[in-house]
Every structure is written in C-alpha cells, then in structure tokens.
Computed example of a mutant assay.
Amino acid sequence: MESALPNNLRKQRTRLGLTQKEAATKLGIGSASYQRYESGTREPNLETLCKLADIFNTSTDYLLGRSRKSMPTFSENSKDDKWTKLGNILSTSEKEKVIKALTD
C-alpha cells in the first residue's frame, strides 16, 4: 500500500508557497533529507512528523492519510499563537460570533 505522506507533504508545502529547501530549513534538516520525505524513500520519525504538522498547520492524521481534512492542531510547542491559528480556521461569520460572545 502506497503511503499518503509524500503526496500530502507536497500539497501542504505548495499550499504555503514553500520550496523544498525552505521547508527543510523550517524543519532544521538538509534539503536532501526533506526531498526524501516527499519522494517516499524515507519516512520521518514521530518527532519530525509532529514538527511537519506544526509547520504546515495541519494534523499528523492528515499528513499520514488517516483524515481527509487538513485541520490544524494546537501543539504546545508551536511558536504560533493559538488565537492566530484559531482565526485561520474560522469563517468570517464564526469569527464574528466569537467576538460577539466575548464582548457581550
């Protein structure tokens, strides 16, 4: 059975407009190592997989093909603010509802 990981990594990287080299730099590895993940000749370890999910603002389940929705996760180690991540996944009307609930 073919792994969904290489294709999903490529999708998420291109969605963010990153090159393989830029993705590798964010991950703290060499570009050749990252390229092997996308080609399917190597799989990341668990720690690296979690970092990839944080970088691409998605879940490990999505990257592994266990979920069809690319929903962000909220890692405690992530550098991004949780409110910013939440704002990225909410629609405008949902954001307005949250603001209304917080200000009422």
Rank of each mutant, 00 (worst) to 15 (best):
L52M: 10
S31H: 02
G87W: 07
K82F: 07
T41E: 13
N77D: 08
N57Q: 11
D80Q: 14
S93I: 04
R10V: 10
L16T: 01
R13T: 11
G65C: 05
R68F: 03
G40V: 00
K95H: 03
I99M: 05
A24S: 10
A53C: 11
K97H: 07
P44Y: 10
Q20F: 02
Y34Q: 09
L5D: 08
E47V: 08
A23S: 13
N7Y: 03
S91F: 01
S75H: 14
T19R: 09
F56G: 03
L46W: 01
G30T: 14
R68I: 13
L49E: 03
P6R: 04
L16Q: 12
E96G: 00
E22Y: 01
Q35T: 15
K11N: 12
L46R: 09
W83E: 13
E76Q: 08
Y62D: 07
S39E: 13
S91Y: 00
K21M: 11
S31R: 07
I29C: 08
M1D: 03
Y62C: 06
A23P: 01
N8V: 04
K85P: 08
Q35L: 14
L5I: 10
G30V: 13
E38C: 05
S3C: 01
P44L: 14
L63S: 11
S31L: 00
A4E: 02
N88A: 15
T19K: 09
E2A: 09
L16E: 08
E96Q: 13
L52F: 05
T19A: 14
T103H: 02
L16I: 03
L27P: 01
R36T: 11
K69P: 00
A24H: 04
E96S: 10
K51G: 07
N45D: 15
T60G: 09
A24K: 05
P6D: 06
K26S: 08
E38M: 01
L63C: 10
L27N: 07
S67M: 00
R68T: 13
D80V: 14
T41K: 07
L102F: 08
S70E: 13
K100P: 00
L63T: 04
R68A: 14
E2P: 11
G17E: 04
R15C: 07
I55V: 06
K51P: 05
S59I: 12
I55C: 04
T92N: 09
G17R: 03
I29S: 02
C50L: 14
F74M: 04
L64Q: 13
P72C: 14
M1K: 05
S67N: 06
S31Q: 10
G40L: 00
D54S: 13
S59M: 12
A4R: 01
T14D: 02
K82I: 12
R13E: 15
E47T: 04
D80S: 14
K82W: 02
I99Y: 03
N45S: 11
N88C: 10
Q20A: 14
K85A: 15
S3W: 01
T14I: 09
Y62E: 06
E2W: 03
K95G: 09
G40Y: 00
A32E: 13
K85N: 14
P6S: 06
W83H: 09
A23K: 01
D104Y: 04
L86F: 11
T58N: 09
S93A: 10
L16N: 00
K85V: 15
